[in-house]
Amino acid sequence: MSLKEQSLSLKEAQKLVLLSQRLPSTKRIGSAQNATLSAIEHLGYIQIDTISVIERAHHHTLYNRNPNYKADHLSALVADKKVFEYWSHAAAFLPMTEYRFSLPRKTAIASGKQKHWFKRDEKLMKAVVERIKHEGPLMAKDFDKKGKKHGEWKTAPTKQALENLFMQGDLMITKRINFHKVYDLTERVLPSDINTVMPTEDEYGRFMVKKYLQTNGLGTLPEITYLLKNVKPLVTNALDTMLNTGEIELVNVSNTAYYVLPEALELLNQPLARKKLKILSPFDNLLIQRKRMTDLFNFDYTLECYVPQHKRKHGYFTLPILWDGKLVARMDSKADRKEKVLHIHQLTLEPSLRKTEAFADALGKELQSFMEFNVCNSIQLHRTIPSSFKFEFEHRFLN
């Protein structure tokens, strides 16, 4: 298929991406917990993060796909063996239905073909497995209550052994207690009917292509293989094969060639809930590839908690805001859980945002829900850019 045969406008590409990401969320049939499972199975992963200035990223991302989301959904789904923890491009919750596609990485790590960041101590790893085998599920602190931490990662030796065993597939995480991982033997965690057949290289390549395009609408080779090790040849072969068979097509967006599933283009016939506003996590599946957001949404975003304070422009933990099909603002926030106050330290509007009154209405509605999601009962808005918006917003909602 020639690039000249089909092209999408930037607005069409943005719509396709958002509908594929299920943003903004729409009503789903079934229980709230099943809606959470549906979101995880559709997206393929939910990134886990430890930062908790507002509700943690994995909860935040799911809340934006399921308005009825509750924080205990994840632990319940793990306990029901519908979801498991492993590695995507980062630590993540993954759907159990796709367990077998975690096996190539696990096998590569176990065989030494792919390096993990912790050094292997085979004797200690064997001892850890034996102890869990006889005592049942254990946490890292059950081993090294007074153990010395060492090495580049300043991590206790048995914690390193646990993580190596987890990454190579011998252990799984059966639950978390106060965010601490509880490890058990994989054979005791996996459902009895789960498919554990190693995918062929062709299957694995096709899976990565199809999953990415289903959940992201369109993509390039670098985007599909983002932060994934040793998969570029498999994905390249899959793209070539699927393009030749018509399973995927190429479209032109702003003079860039993107791969797309033909059936995904039908999404463009569906409406996008442009009036709905969503406050996104920095680790949301939509946002995780910053260059992609610049290319497709003209949104230059940096998470500044990793930037020295004197160099921050927008704030420590800035949340991108989606509205009218675009990324139109960013909000540096912190939930004071003791005082139950959601602080908005700085709200920065993008220069391209013109309909500020309509935006203020949408933001006010969503902030009420977002405040409750963060277990707060009031909001303090400290600063806006431009400063005139602070008066406009407070006059409408905070008086």
Score class of each variant (00 low, 15 high):
Y86V: 06
D324T: 01
L23H: 08
K70V: 09
F101R: 03
E203T: 09
K11H: 13
F166C: 04
K148M: 05
N195D: 15
A35P: 00
H58T: 08
M198H: 11
K311P: 00
E339S: 11
A161I: 00
E266L: 13
L171N: 05
V251W: 05
T174W: 01
T245N: 07
S333T: 15
E5M: 09
V375C: 10
D144E: 12
K365T: 14
V209Q: 06
L8G: 04
H60R: 04
F118C: 04
S20R: 03
E163W: 00
S25C: 08
T50F: 11
K11P: 00
L286Q: 05
K326Y: 08
K278H: 12
D170G: 00
A264S: 15
E372T: 15
R312Q: 12
L19T: 11
L296R: 09
W117D: 04
T302N: 10
H116I: 05
I385R: 09
L124F: 02
T26R: 13
S88I: 01
P271R: 06
L3N: 05
I224H: 02
E98H: 13
M1W: 05
A32H: 02
L327F: 08
Q309G: 07
I109L: 12
K154A: 03
D295S: 12
R292E: 10
E304P: 09
P157R: 02
T200Y: 11
L138V: 00
K70F: 08
F370V: 11
S75Y: 05
K275R: 10
R56C: 14
Y301T: 02
V83S: 10
S25G: 04
K390G: 01
K291I: 10
M1E: 11
H314M: 02
T220R: 13
P271G: 04
D284G: 04
E223R: 01
T256C: 02
D240I: 05
K340V: 05
L303K: 05
L218P: 03
Q214Y: 02
K355H: 15
V375L: 13
F373A: 02
T97E: 09
Y63W: 15
R354P: 00
Q14H: 06
N64V: 09
D144N: 04
I321C: 07
S52P: 03
P282M: 01
M96C: 02
D184M: 11
D295E: 15
D142L: 03
S7E: 13
E135T: 13
T236A: 12
H59Q: 06
V189Y: 14
R131P: 09
E249K: 14
T155D: 00
D80C: 01
T302S: 12
K126H: 10
E304T: 08
T348W: 10
K340Y: 04
Q160I: 02
H60G: 07
V189C: 12
V253H: 05
L227K: 12
P233T: 07
K123Q: 12
S192I: 07
T356S: 07
E392S: 12
L267R: 14
H116K: 02
L228S: 04
E203W: 08
D80P: 00
R22S: 08
